[in-house]
Structure formats: C-alpha cells, structure tokens
C-alpha cells in the first residue's frame, strides 16, 4: 500500500468515526451516497485502466525518447505536448523520464511542455471528468490547460 493510500484511508476512517459519533442516521445516508457514486464512477475507471494498460504495453518510455530526442524546435514541442496530453504516467516515472528526455537532446522548452500537459491534461481521464462536470466545463479546462502548457514551455525555454 502506498503512503497516499494509507493517508486517504486514515482520513476516511477518522471522518467516519467522527461522523458516527455525531449522527448515525446521517452516516447511513452518506454511505448510501458513497455506494451510488461508486456504481456510477466504476465504468469510466474501468475504461481508463484498459486504456492506460494498453498504452504502457505498446509505448515504452525509451521508444518515445528515441523518437523525440532527434527533433527540436517548436514543432517538437507541439508533438511532445500532444504526447503528454494523451499519455498517462505516474509522477514517479514521469520526472526521471523527463530528465532522460533532456539527456537525449530534447529542449528544456519541450520538456516543460511535456510535464505540464502530462499532469494537467488527461485524455484518458476525460470521460470521467465529463461525467462529473459536464462536457462544457471539462473541455474548457483541458483546452485552456493546453494553452497554458505551451505558454509555460515558451517562457521556461526562453529563461533557462
């Protein structure tokens, strides 16, 4: 179990204990809501796991860095930003991978774009986001984030 998992479970248990001491009836109501949310959220999560698993199997980090390392310039930044938007990678892998991109000759600009789109834009998690917030808000957030990522990349590329 990861430390985040421990933390979240601890939080849930403390909350539950506290709530039970306050009002048992409301706790039952809350847990019914939890179950309903869970049933609704499960399908997009299953879809997401399938997509991530296939992606990790077919696209390996060293393949990508070989592909990106060759090209530079803004075109390369756009390509790698798009890649970051589609990919889904835990931070533990993402940062060492970003460092290896730099070592392989990618520009700072490209790496900044990659990290920002990777974390902020989730094509894989988009169905989940749309379910919770509606299409309009989810698409707006992801589109704006893409713009921000490129802006950040250009500034970082210029400064560093």
């Amino acid at each position: 179990m990861s430390s985040t998992a421990v933390l979240i479970n601890l939080l849930a248990l403390t909350g539950l204990a506290f709530a039970l001491s306050r009002d048992r009836h409301k706790v039952r109501q809350a847990l019914r809501m939890s179950l309903k949310t869970f049933i609704g959220i499960l399908p997009p999560i299953i879809t997401m796991i399938v997509a991530i698993s296939l992606m990790m199997a077919f696209l390996r980090p060293d393949d990508i860095s070989r592909f990106i390392g060759e090209q530079a310039g803004f075109r390369g930044t756009l390509a790698i930003a798009a890649l970051g938007a589609v990919l889904f990678m835990p931070a533990i892998i993402a940062f060492p991978f970003a460092a290896s991109l730099l070592d392989n000759g990618a520009s700072v600009q490209a790496v900044a774009a990659f990290i920002t789109t990777l974390t902020m834009i989730g094509v894989v998690t988009l169905p989940l986001e749309i379910r919770e917030f509606g299409r309009r808000m989810a698409l707006l957030r992801n589109a704006f984030s893409a713009g921000i990522a490129l802006l950040i990349a250009v500034v970082i590329g210029a400064v560093l």
Binding site: I8, M33, T37, I45, I49, V50
Partner: peptide
C-alpha cells in the same frame, strides 16, 4: 492493469466514503 486495479482497490472505497461524508 493489475497494478492499477490494486491501487483502485486501496484508494477508491476510502474516497467514496469521503465523498459521501462531505455530501451529507
């Protein structure tokens, strides 16, 4: 897939409990 399912199983129930508690 197995890694993610395991992660979900350790995180998701707790998150759902928190969502329910916050909601009520």
């Amino acid at each position: 897939a197995r890694d993610y399912v395991l992660e979900m199983m350790t995180i998701l129930p707790a998150v759902m409990v928190i969502v329910g508690l916050v909601g009520v």
